[in-house]
């Protein structure tokens, strides 16, 4: 495990993202501190609308004028939120690459994948089109697409979702980035293909020492693939812990709830322990801890005080007012949800 020990590759401090909406600005990301170590795979977990994708799109500054991003994103001593757009463009794809959700729709439907790969290579490596094509084939081989030569002339709609995801990864690799952000890279894929893609990501990290941020809603995916896990809820970090033994060591009531709601395939069958209530809409702002309305162990102070990330063990912090004393036994109070549960 390569933890953020010496100097992290990327340092995010107090990242906040506000989006303009017809009802006025909505704060989607509400102050995130996060380090990505060199050669590390960092898993980022959360449910829809928690801000996990938005925060990385904000780091790469592609949200457009509708969004305001504040805070600092330190990369090689420079704050990416301060550099000029021209300088930022030089970072995108070359130093920090990101693959977005749903690979098939992230590829241009009217160009061959060969063209799109070569275009990226020509731009990043300043090479000619003919050598770009050779290089494109090599990249497709690297992401283990069989029959690479033939694939170059094909269009995204002719390939399966899994193959398109490999193409998207190949494109991200074309600039030899230091950090690859993979947003739900396996969500639309079948489990057998998902396993292959996750293996591929680990292999890339092993071979090139690239840092990877793996964004997913599936704790299982993140647990199997990453070194550290960050859990997000309603625009903030709830918990950060090493992935080994995560299912045992996780402490935040929300993390525990997620673990209980989706039991592993080899756990005994019983009634699922669902988290009551629903994920709050990004426009909902409440005082105190965002999870307290759904929390089974909330204290009176939880509705007043917003908890900060507090270290509870080595490499393990939790944002919960109960955290210093918070042990598993308190959190694991069974919460039965009946069908008639009002929410």
């Amino acid at each position: 495990m390569q933890h953020a020990s010496v100097a992290p590759l990327l340092q995010i401090r107090d990242l906040r993202v506000r989006l303009q909406s017809i009802h006025g600005p909505i704060e989607i990301v509400r102050g995130i501190d996060l380090d990505v170590g060199r050669g590390e795979i960092l898993g980022l977990v959360g449910e829809s609308g928690c801000g996990k994708s938005i925060s990385w799109l904000a780091v790469l500054r592609v949200l457009g004028r509708q969004a305001t991003t504040t805070g600092t994103v330190l990369f090689e001593g420079r704050n990416l939120l301060d550099v000029t757009e021209k300088e930022m463009a030089a970072y995108r794809g070359r130093r920090l690459a990101m693959i977005v959700q749903d690979a098939t729709s992230s590829l241009n439907p009217i160009h061959t994948i060969g063209f799109q790969l070569a275009e990226t290579l020509v731009h990043h490596r300043r090479i000619g089109w003919s050598s770009a094509r050779t290089e494109a084939k090599r990249l497709l081989d690297r992401v283990k697409i069989p029959g690479a030569e033939r694939r170059l002339g094909q269009y995204p709609h002719e390939l399966s979702g899994g193959t398109n995801q490999r193409v998207a990864i190949a494109m991200a690799l074309s600039g030899n980035p230091d950090l690859l952000i993979a947003d739900e890279p396996t969500t639309a894929l079948d489990v057998t293909v998902q396993a292959q893609i996750l293996e591929l990501l680990q292999e890339i990290r092993r071979d090139s020492g690239m840092s990877i941020v793996l964004i997913s809603h599936d704790l299982g995916v993140v647990c199997e693939t990453s070194d550290r896990i960050a859990v997000m809820y309603a625009g903030r970090l709830a918990e950060m812990a090493p992935s080994s033994d995560f299912w045992r060591s996780a402490r935040h009531p929300y993390t525990r709830g997620l673990l209980d709601a989706a039991p592993d395939i080899d756990e005994p069958i019983g009634r699922l322990r669902a988290i009551p209530g629903q994920v709050p809409a990004p426009s909902e702002t409440s005082r105190g801890c965002a999870f307290q309305a759904r929390c089974g162990v909330a204290l009176p102070s939880c509705s007043v005080e917003t908890p900060a990330m507090t270290p509870v063990a080595k490499h393990h912090s939790v944002a919960c007012l109960r955290s210093p004393s918070c042990g598993r036994e308190i959190v694991q109070v069974p919460r039965e949800v009946t069908a008639c549960h009002p929410f």
Partner: peptide, 11 residues
């Protein structure tokens, strides 16, 4: 989405 993806690739 593929336009944002192209921006993210640095095109």
């Amino acid at each position: 989405p593929h336009i944002r993806a192209a921006t993210l690739r640095g095109i």
